[in-house]
Design a protein around this nucleic acid. Sequence first.
DNA 1: GTTGAAAATGGTAACGATTGCGTAAATAAA
DNA 2: TTTATTTACGCAATCGTTACCATTTTCAAC
Lengths: 373, 373
Amino acid sequence: MWTKPHPYFYLYIYLVKDDAMKFEAATIKDIAKALGVSTSTVSRALRDSHEISPETKQLVIECAERLNYKPNPIALSLKEKRSRSIGLVVTEIANNFFSQIINGIESIAYDKGYNVIITQTFESYDREVMDVQFLASRGVDGLIISLSTETHDLSHLKALHDRGLPIVFFDRITDEINTHKVIVDNYKGSFEATEHLLQMGAKRIAVISSSEFLSITKDRVAGYKEALKMHGMEPTDELIHYSYYSGMVFSEVEEIINKLFTLKHKPDAILTTSDKITTGVLKTLKRRGIRIPDDVALAGFSNTDIPELLDPPLTIVQQPSREMGEAAVSLLLQMIESKRPIRDFEKRMLSPELQIRASSVVKKKAGKKPSGK
Amino acid sequence: MWTKPHPYFYLYIYLVKDDAMKFEAATIKDIAKALGVSTSTVSRALRDSHEISPETKQLVIECAERLNYKPNPIALSLKEKRSRSIGLVVTEIANNFFSQIINGIESIAYDKGYNVIITQTFESYDREVMDVQFLASRGVDGLIISLSTETHDLSHLKALHDRGLPIVFFDRITDEINTHKVIVDNYKGSFEATEHLLQMGAKRIAVISSSEFLSITKDRVAGYKEALKMHGMEPTDELIHYSYYSGMVFSEVEEIINKLFTLKHKPDAILTTSDKITTGVLKTLKRRGIRIPDDVALAGFSNTDIPELLDPPLTIVQQPSREMGEAAVSLLLQMIESKRPIRDFEKRMLSPELQIRASSVVKKKAGKKPSGK
DNA sequence: GTTGAAAATGGTAACGATTGCGTAAATAAA
DNA sequence: TTTATTTACGCAATCGTTACCATTTTCAAC
């Protein structure tokens, strides 16, 4: 029996709705109800199935637009066991190399209807494991990862790989898991940079690299050594140093510089093999009043967008980071969308670019070496 | 009737599994089946409900660990209408200001069990709308956003706000939507920078700012103007310029510099109000051979981590970006987790820091102004 | 020995979407 | 007219989880 509601009734409804409503998008059910058809019909109409009459389709599509219907990706993920999202694990976003990688990945992923979930490890193994497990539990369809410096045990990734999750490694890769990999020619990059320093007349080139356990470190140091040998010099351990946290911990870099500059024979050039190490060295040298390139020449791997604004302008080995991201995501999507499991994997190697600037170009003063061309 | 399978049978099974298996995590059903109980019991046991006997709980928990059970967040999202994830919209990741913001946000979000989905607009309105709708459809529980320069119409955000989606604005905010906001004291930042330039003896300070439609631009230019007035100078339009894409389009900056340096009375100092503009101006000035600070002093908003490595070392107004991120996410989580709708919103204003370096410190040569302490 | 309440567990319907199967009506072939 | 075949749609299961509503068992009180 109907009784006129108390005036507060309306207010109450309003409050309750305001609180509970949170966020209600139109569903397939709403369309079905509005049109007096079943949800299956709506679903099929929207997917343009042949078993729905043109008129019904028309009706459904119009109604969907009217209600601003958007399929619910969460429901789809649950049903289809695919999320159309891919996971990305990088060291840190606040590093141009990685943010450019991200841009490369996203540009392609978005085009293909995938979204990218980005996580950072800050070089921590624990964070990496957490990140990877988080992404897996979120149901990503694939994973793109550059290993953290602390990662020596790969079981967290092997488990996923064994279960069939597509994975692509880039930058810091591993031999222990057989899948697609994307890197630059690290050997070539440091070979050329070293050779350049030699041509500038350097006699004692020190190298400061990332953790010696990282794949990139091995290649980059190898390139350095080979360049020395090719020019008749023997690499010495006292000039080869490793920064375990890749320059992320500034004191590591400072200590290495301290060591180098208390040597009897000080270096006359330094090759650095990662972004943070490069800027860390530059900072330390400036603080100590060591002149570049007069006292020591400097060249290093870096993807900064302002190498020419530094003092001195920096000679860098630049990685085609955007292209690397594009390559990585292309390979990953190829794996994800392939029907048959892939057995042949590719290690795609891109070319770094040596950009020569003042930090390595020694003005000929006491220089007695003609230094080629 | 059983017949011995053909030898290939096993191989076939293997292939099919290999192909289809993709990725099968243990579910609550597996536990239920293994233990011969119902899924409801398992669910309750895992959530430590009082209506499950201690022995059963024990059994379930052990089994869950044995099977490495992890609740499926996707199923949970669907059921609970919350995803424990928050959406972030920034201009671009490859900008220290934003990557530091991200770190601030993530540090707190992860602690509280939320994950962050990052999207970039690259200053494009269309991208912003896409990003926001993508995040909404992904069922984020809340949104943190810094508006793109092209965004004049806010209906995409108003719609979500009206539906009750918690939103926090930071950096580039708007008055049109009533919610929490986090900014730095932009007025103060540029006031102090301008005052500093004045104290260094500058007579004609130009300002190059972002789009004049952005909230930050208004405040920053206002601070600049007020500082001039306080020191008895009248702002002139010929010294006030706007880069619509905030320095993202380099030619904009070049043109502005061109204009400024073809004036009859050239500026003797420049204040830049965003990261990209600051480095863009530095680059342009260097290319044109204009000496800093001798020909023109330079100070600008920037969050670069290497201001002291630039040539010259850069005077910057630095924003406490990490803290801004932390503040934004704290406010957002507070909104998300509040039972009652929030009616009182906060505009939290943090203090920027003026770091003085050589780019603005004019060596007293022809300088006749004592310029105080 | 009923009756009652409490304790422990099961069944089932959601959440939003897809899909195989069933089936009514309409048309075509016999 | 009868039998196939097509067309166009509905029903119900499914994905993993939770929550409401039974139902069963246990044990105590009368």
